[in-house]
Design a protein around this nucleic acid. Structure first.
Length: 285
DNA sequence: CAGCCAGTCTGCATCTATGC
DNA sequence: GCATAGATGCAGACTGGCTG
């Protein structure tokens, strides 16, 4: 670990993940615990942005989301995200890497990773029937109920305009696939109040929203929710890279303002391969 | 308290990319 | 070619919070 942390050994984070909230069961003795299923992925976003017109990217920039229009890392490395969830300390809001140090989960760390707006308005991610009833027909005129997240992405891909409908669908996709994914196949209807206030999206505190969403999820041991892109990039971006061999992938990530603009999946993999202790544990660097 | 509903969890499945 | 992992899908069971 290179910077941004105080070196305190602290190994008292050993809380095995509690699963199966729905059934209350937890199989004993399954040493090879199954991977946590999640619905987060920025892959579709990178495919979409690749085809966006300049006007459409401009519309995203008007909402302060320009950094997300060029995500270089297309995939996730899920084991490291699972691991970070398990070593998270809700009380101090820090990731405690055994024997290495701590990484905070806060607005600043999210800003450094993703470069999303850090305004003064709270992100209104909440249910609101009136706003939903007004906006839903605008977004999905032929549908009765919320489409799957992938179907929303399909409709986004088919769009050639860059007006409010485009902005709303893009925001909804960002929220449900990258910023605040849940285990659901569909976007949450808590998105609507955000979409209803497009002008203020760039003035909302997305950094706090993402950090709080992850914090709340991990506090209730929901390790599959939240922004995995931030988790992964925040971690690799904080490590000491001096011993990592980047020659096979054309050199280390360039200096950058936001991690999301610099890291490629191959760079992430090279670092994590060097950092891995066992299959499911990291923290060597 | 009963019913509703959004969200969670599991098993099973398909497709693709990557590495051995 | 085969195994593995990531992304995505569907059906069905369940839970916790809200509301009448």
């Amino acid at each position: 670990m290179a910077h941004g942390d105080h070196q305190i050994d602290d190994d008292d984070f050993m809380n095995p993940p509690q699963r199966n909230r729905a059934t209350g069961q937890r199989k004993e003795g399954d040493e090879k615990k199954k991977r946590i299923r999640n619905r987060a992925s920025q892959e579709r976003l990178t495919v979409l942005t690749d085809k966006f017109t300049n006007d459409q990217k401009g519309a995203a920039a008007e909402m302060g989301m320009q950094a997300l229009m060029d995500v270089r890392c297309m995939n996730l490395v899920n084991p490291v995200c699972d691991w970070l969830g398990e070593i998270y300390h809700p009380a101090s809001r820090e990731f405690v890497i055994p024997g290495r140090g701590r990484l905070p989960l806060n607005e600043k760390s999210v800003f450094c990773t993703l470069g999303v707006p850090r305004g003064h308005i709270k992100v209104p991610y909440e249910l609101n029937n009136e706003k939903e009833e007004v906006l839903f027909p605008c977004l999905f005129p032929s549908l009765e109920s919320m489409p799957n997240t992938s179907a929303l992405a399909d409709s986004l891909q088919a769009m050639t305009t860059h007006g409010d409908v485009f902005k709303m669908k893009l925001l909804m996709h960002l929220i449900s696939a990258v910023f605040a994914p849940t285990t659901s196949l569909r976007p949450s209807n808590k998105c609507f109040p955000i979409l209803a206030d497009l002008k203020n999206v760039k003035n909302m505190n997305w950094c706090k929203f993402l950090a709080d969403f992850l914090h709340n999820a991990f506090s209730s041991k929901m390790y599959q929710k939240g922004c995995r892109l931030h988790l992964m990039l925040m971690y690799v971006d904080c490590l000491d890279l001096s011993t990592v061999d980047f020659t096979r992938i054309g050199g280390p990530p360039p200096t950058h303002k936001f991690a999301v603009s610099a890291w490629t999946i191959n760079a992430v993999k090279a670092v994590l391969a060097a950092d891995r202790v066992t299959d499911a544990k990291y923290g060597k660097l």
